[in-house]
Amino acid sequence: MKNLKKKLSLLGVASTGLLLLSGCVQTHIVDGVRVPTEAATQGLTYQILVKPMSSFVDLFANNMNLGYGWGIVLVTLIIRFLILPLGLNQAYKSTYMQEKTAYLAPVFEPLNARLKAATTPEERMAAQQALMKAQKDNGINMLSSLGCLPLLIQWPFFIALYNAAAYTPGISTATFFGINLGSSSIVITLIAGVFYFLQTWISTKSMTPEQKKTGLTMLIMSPVMIIIFSFMSPAGVALYWAVGGIVMVIQQIIITYIMKPRMRQKIEEEFKHNPPKMADLPKDVTPKSATQQGLKNLDAPYKKNNKGRNSGKQKRK
């Protein structure tokens, strides 16, 4: 059930992203070609984001006589590499906390087990408080890796690139290695899928078995959605995603084979000089039932009298 919820959540996020991208510029069909409406070309999104990016594509396509296919490729690479440091910075923060949490698994496992085994709200609250205290004592703060600034900075570029690839005049009638950029292309779709699956596969190489178990489904869903959306879009848009996939693979190689090994070494050194703080398991704070409390109260006089009788017998002896 949890896995199904994860899949549906990711599908919803991906679908929302596609709708936002495709819905930024209103379009209509003219002579069998989808183009922006007159009102859309006067809109703020088109004027600020799409038009400058279209001009950037035109610079390579017409001014340098490279064609629209290479124009999309070069513009996508330039933008992607410009914002690559932001992506790596965000990846570093999130990966650092993940690796640190994995290193401290022996500290957190008993607390997580107690949390799963909790049968009452009181037990669950005590286990959660103990887990949060252990995380705080050992410097774990997952919220610190969820900064929105890198995403907010990247998002306008993605919107502009997507719409420029879809609606720049001339792209719909251009070809790239014999592929019509105005129609869907299974070839470019498969290329995009291969790069995103490769990025996913590389990301699993440095994962622990537990991380693979919990995160593999989410990782696989991303390239699957890229394939679906690429096939539903013109080849010009699919080409943008395919080239973006190349940069994603490069980014993942840096994270997996350069960033993570150094990060693990840093974490080991950190805890070598400052050993992990072990957490105490939460006490059983489950309140006794009214019946148990009542029986205890009923037994009190009997125990008191019984104690008095025994003491009298001991004195007589």
Rank of each mutant, 00 (worst) to 15 (best):
I186W: 15
S183A: 15
S145R: 08
S184M: 07
Q129P: 07
T175L: 09
Q154N: 12
T173H: 05
K133T: 12
Q135F: 04
I179E: 03
A164F: 04
A160T: 06
F176Y: 05
W155D: 00
N180Y: 07
N180D: 10
I188F: 02
D137G: 01
L131F: 08
A130I: 09
M132G: 10
S145I: 11
V187E: 09
P169L: 06
M132V: 12
G139M: 07
V187T: 14
N138G: 03
L149W: 13
I153N: 08
I179A: 03
Y167G: 00
A174K: 01
I179F: 12
N141V: 15
Q129K: 13
S184V: 12
L152Q: 09
S145L: 06
P150F: 05
G147Q: 11
F158Y: 14
V187S: 08
L149G: 03
T173N: 05
G147T: 14
N163F: 03
T173E: 11
G170S: 04
Q129G: 02
I153Q: 09
I171L: 01
A174N: 02
A165M: 10
G139P: 04
S145E: 06
G182Y: 05
S184G: 12
Y167F: 13
A130D: 05
S183P: 05
N180F: 11
N138W: 08
A130Q: 02
L131S: 02
Y162G: 01
P169M: 03
N180K: 08
S184K: 04
